[in-house]
Design a protein around this nucleic acid. Structure first.
Lengths: 290, 290
DNA sequence: GCCGTTTTGCAACGATTGTTGCGAAGGCCG
DNA sequence: CGGCCTTCGCAACAATCGTTGCAAAACGGC
């Protein structure tokens, strides 16, 4: 390691970390990511605390700092601390804004849509928490766990939700079949469902015909149905064994998917817990992203 | 000193210090002034360092804290640290704050995973708000608006995000091509991209090879790239014209998609606003769900 | 599949930090 | 002016923290 380096300010340090990132070892890369992503935590806590939080030994942090030209981790940490103390002029104001609990501000047009969307999504999530009972999740999870095959339907705006469900459930070792409209076979594939399977249908206004039909047929055929929709008055309601009515909040032209996505994850976590408890699944409990 | 006090958050502490200020001894008053006027320094440095800077012995600081009901100075300092951690990019502390804020009952096992997931998602969203600047969104939106065709890549866990993007952008009248791995043609289709198009790549650890390769090739071929990923250290970073680094936070085996999904929506809203302003799109501005 | 290299975790060391007992300095009232 | 009480600094203690040497493990090349 060329000891000529050792940046003396935060920005240069971050830049150096980015440069060297690719040629670092796996653990060092994780450290690099943590440092860049949690600069405040780094400034405030001790090496041991930080290391424990990433599941890496403290000594690796020290060596990481040394490989960058510092004498120890303390020296590197000092840069993070100086950054906080010397933070931009807007910083103190932001702190105070948060302290006074003022989440929504006036910068409507300037700060742009993002703030509005975030606020909306948060509201959706809080709403979700109040409307969904753990018992329902447990019931649905049990159905999914016991199912031979999990069938999934959801079109257009609901597609991302079923996509996520399919991904995680598959990783958990459940057999999943996506009733994809693009092949044109969805309805016919749906007719192959049996009572020992389970159907998860996701649909919001205006409820896609195909999804509603599949749900109805499933109900008639005795296939258990878990429905994620927007109202207890939804056309999915009558056939559903478990019905999740998640709140819907519009913003300009699109609706929030935060609540249904979160609910979907909650479902998968519940299923995973059951699988693990029953020792049914020898699969890795850690699903990795992409 | 009534030991019934000992505030548990920064604001209450400052309030208490102000209340007691007048009846304090001279040195304690100087301490009080320093603490309230240099909260950042207090959070970062050691007692000795702080004490030295005011010309007061460290033990006085300890006793000061004890007179307020704490066991030692460390305990008081922790409040200053939490304040910094919750003020700026800092996820962990925010989760802790939210957990107590969202009136967490004992129902750990009962209320189940849902509450934890909601808390995590909300924290992710708040984090998102602080990390993404409106300017970046505008830049990306402009790229998307001007693009002849929008190409989309994202696999596994990222698939829901690109799914959503494809859906809304298509509804807005943009021509979208999804580089879907299931056909096996993704890489080859990617080679048909031109500089007048735009590529939106979504990928998180561990970055799928195919996505990274496509992004790299696009960068080399001069195709503008908008990347949604988890770190500025991501392999997508070097080719990206706009890079959205949204934080990633684990919960048991799955990571939150709340932030990327919200960001995706924000992007589409920004694009929609541009299309409408320029009168480029005669399409209905109201996308309906399903 | 083996061996040399790198990488990583563990344990012990030294250094630093936070805390406390004690005594001196300073202020207040008699 | 003197005695008592509060207040403060010093120095020693215990705990924690950062660092490093060493050995095991993982990795890569042959």
């Amino acid at each position: 390691m060329s000891t000529v380096s050792a940046p003396e300010n935060y920005e240069d340090l971050i830049r150096l970390i980015h440069e060297r990132h690719d040629e670092m070892s796996k653990t060092y890369q994780r450290i690099a990511v943590y440092l860049t992503q949690n600069p405040n935590e780094v400034a405030v806590h001790s090496v041991n605390a930080i290391a424990a939080r990433c599941g890496i030994h403290a000594s690796s942090f020290v060596r990481f700092a040394q490989s960058l030209g510092y004498q120890g981790f303390k020296e590197l940490q000092a840069l993070f601390q100086k950054r906080l103390a010397t933070a931009a002029p807007g910083f103190e104001a932001r702190v105070r804004a948060l302290e006074t609990e003022l989440k929504v501000r006036e910068d409507r047009s300037e700060a742009g849509f993002l703030r509005d969307l975030v606020v909306r999504d948060i509201a959706s999530l809080q709403d979700l928490l109040e409307r969904i009972s753990p018992a329902e999740i447990e019931t649905a999870a049990e159905m999914i766990e016991k199912a031979e095959t999990v069938f999934l339907v959801g079109q257009l705006r609901s597609a991302p939700v079923v996509d996520l469900l399919r991904y995680i459930l598959t990783m958990l070792g459940k057999r999943c079949v996506l009733l994809d409209p693009s092949g044109g076979l969805a309805t016919h594939m749906a007719r192959t469902m049996k009572a020992s399977d389970v159907l998860i249908a996701v649909s919001f206004r205006f409820y896609a015909n195909e999804v509603v039909n599949i749900a109805d047929e499933a109900g008639a055929a005795g296939v258990p149905l878990v429905a994620i929709t927007d109202s207890t008055l939804s056309p999915l309601a009558k056939s559903a064994r478990v019905l999740f009515a998640v709140p819907e909040h519009d913003y300009s032209f699109s609706r929030s998917l935060a609540a249904p996505m979160c609910l979907a994850q909650a479902l998968t976590v519940a299923v995973a817990a059951r699988l693990q408890k029953d020792g049914n699944s020898p699969r890795i409990p850690t699903v990795t992203g992409t």
